[in-house]
Design a protein around this nucleic acid. Structure first.
Length: 487
RNA sequence: GGCGCCAUGGCCAAGUGGUAAGGCAGAGGCCUGCAAAGCCUUUAUUCCCCGGUUCGAAUCCGGGUGGCGCCUCCA
């Protein structure tokens, strides 16, 4: 099976052939660090995290680069508003970003460059563009002259005339054409500034990505991605700069993730309808949020709601329940039974094949996870019959189940601890204050009551345990305490 | 106004011309002292509407209708 990737440039799925296999270079646009990240940022980060993970899983030697834009008008404005040094502001939100994304299981990129560390390279490109006559300086600002670049509009599928017709940009008279964009901006008094051939100034918005991607990965890049909202103007402008400066193709595969919506509308800062990752994590566990984000194909819109998050939790817990049961089952030192063997060969056969086929089809995590659900029935059935017959399962069976979920989980960023994750899930955040010990003692007392068929007392004890914040499950392996939700 | 994307069961959702994955919710059954968890069965002759291409279309083409996005900072 070959990997197929939807390329925004062609508007089609294409077979993926990196420039120099097995090496693959990915550059994903990161965030501008002036505020906390919201769920939309999380979606982009998780989407490209999975893309990098799956490429590695498929045997590619991946270099994943994700930048921080740490110099920009928004950062300057915000630092002025708050009276905080812009560098401190950027540092604060880089750290917050790393914490939040880390919580969601987003792996660190191989290189995480900051725009301000690449000022020399940025100036270099701007100089080249100026020398080539596609950029011009006005009062310390340098603009890219869009009309001089033939392919302008090829990514966002629009042409210069249309844009001029529909332009509602406030016209800067100094620009030769309203659609020309800034490569370099002169600094006002007190603003962050670097020395340049055009005087003190700072980079324009788009140039940093051209500079950093070329410096780290070279040109062309295999994959460049980000949210759909970056297609225009950000990525379109990057193409213009990089191709004009480098005289060669900039990016082979452009990948863009869809938005997170609230009531079918794009979540965005300007609409004010956004939730930060931190806010969401106060209510839902990180695995649930990640599961939610991957439950729809990365290019489709994804509606954020309590209902959707709750469903993601229910779905995720199906796996946790299986894992907890499997871990609890007594491992027996014997060969696998016929049925046990059949259940695991479905895992590594049919299900894994389907899983990979889905991922090969433009990283279709929704379909891939769907196939994982089909493992639940047969596996739970094995545990059902083991319980019914009052025995355990073959140690080898547990090992295979564990290995399978670690393997596929590694691709989508779940199940790192294998079946041990189940018990960990249901015991997270409990204990410490002695209530768990109390509840355990009562559960044991309840076992006695049940032996004596004293159902009244058993139910009473269950209620009392409930008051301590736990539900009791009676399993063949004894009582299991599960923390109650919203307790 | 220009360009583009999307419309699949009560809800979410996959679906790359060959006869509708998966999940949630619901119903019934099994298991259980009762539960919980779990298992089994069950819920779209049909994919917004109308035409067309084809032996065959949810999938391709044309036209509608509805929703959304970009065109200004934005993942």
């Amino acid at each position: 099976m070959t990997l197929r990737v939807y390329n925004t440039l062609s508007g089609k799925k294409e077979e993926f052939h990196p420039l120099s296999p097995p090496k693959v270079g990915i550059y994903a646009c990161g965030v501008t660090v002036y505020d906390y990240c919201h769920i939309g940022h999380a979606r982009a980060a998780v989407a490209f995290d999975v893309i990098a993970r799956y490429l590695r899983f498929s045997g590619y030697d991946v270099t994943y680069v994700r930048n921080y834009t740490d110099i920009d008008d928004k950062i300057i404005n915000r630092s002025n508003e708050q009276g905080v040094d812009w560098k401190d502001l950027a540092r604060t939100f880089i750290e917050a970003h790393d914490t939040d994304m880390g919580a969601l299981g987003v792996q660190r990129a191989d290189v995480e460059p900051r725009a301000t560390d690449y000022i020399d390279q940025i100036i270099g490109i701007v100089k080249t563009l100026e020398e080539k006559g596609v950029a011009y300086e006005v009062d310390g600002d340098v603009y890219f002259e869009v009309e001089k670049f033939d392919g302008y509009g090829k990514l966002s599928k629009r042409n210069i005339e249309e844009m001029q017709a529909g332009a509602r940009i406030d016209v800067d008279e100094r620009k030769r054409n309203p659609i020309d964009f800034a490569l370099w901006k002169s600094s006002k008094q007190g603003e962050p500034a670097w020395d340049s051939p055009w005087g003190k100034g700072r980079p324009g918005w788009h140039i940093e990505c051209s500079a950093m991607s070329a410096a780290i990965l070279g040109q062309p890049l295999d994959i460049h991605g980000g949210g759909k909202d970056l297609i225009f103007p950000h990525h379109e402008n990057e193409i213009a700069q990089s191709e004009a400066a480098g005289d060669r193709e900039f990016v082979r595969y452009w990948m863009h993730n869809g938005f997170v919506n609230i009531d079918s509308e794009k979540m965005s800062k300007s609409l004010g309808n956004f939730f930060t990752i931190r806010e969401v994590l106060e209510k839902y566990r990180p695995e649930v949020v990640r599961f939610f984000l991957l439950s729809t194909h990365y290019r489709s819109p994804l509606d954020f709601s309590d209902r959707a998050l709750t469903e993601a939790e229910t779905r995720y817990e199906r796996f946790m329940n299986l894992f907890a049961r499997a871990a609890r089952a007594e491992p027996q030192d014997r060969d696998l039974t016929e049925k046990e063997r059949a259940s695991t060969s479905v895992l590594t056969g049919e299900i894994e094949t389907h899983f990979r086929a889905a991922m090969d089809d433009d990283f279709n995590t929704a379909a891939a996870i769907g196939h994982l659900f089909t493992a639940l029935g047969p596996l739970n059935a094995i545990l059902d019959s083991a319980d019914a017959e009052g025995r355990g399962v073959a140690a080898g069976w547990k090992k295979e189940v564990d290995a399978f979920f670690r393997k596929v989980g590694g691709v989508i960023g779940f199940f790192e601890g294998g079946i041990a994750d189940g018990e960990a899930w249901f015991s997270a955040g409990v204990g410490g204050d002695g209530t768990l010990e109390k509840a355990r003692a009562m559960a044991l007392e309840r076992v006695e009551a049940r032996k004596n068929k004293d159902w009244a007392k058993a139910d009473e004890l269950r209620d009392e345990i409930g008051e301590l914040g736990y539900a009791v499950q009676d399993t063949p392996q004894g009582p299991v305490l599960i923390p109650l939700k919203d307790a």
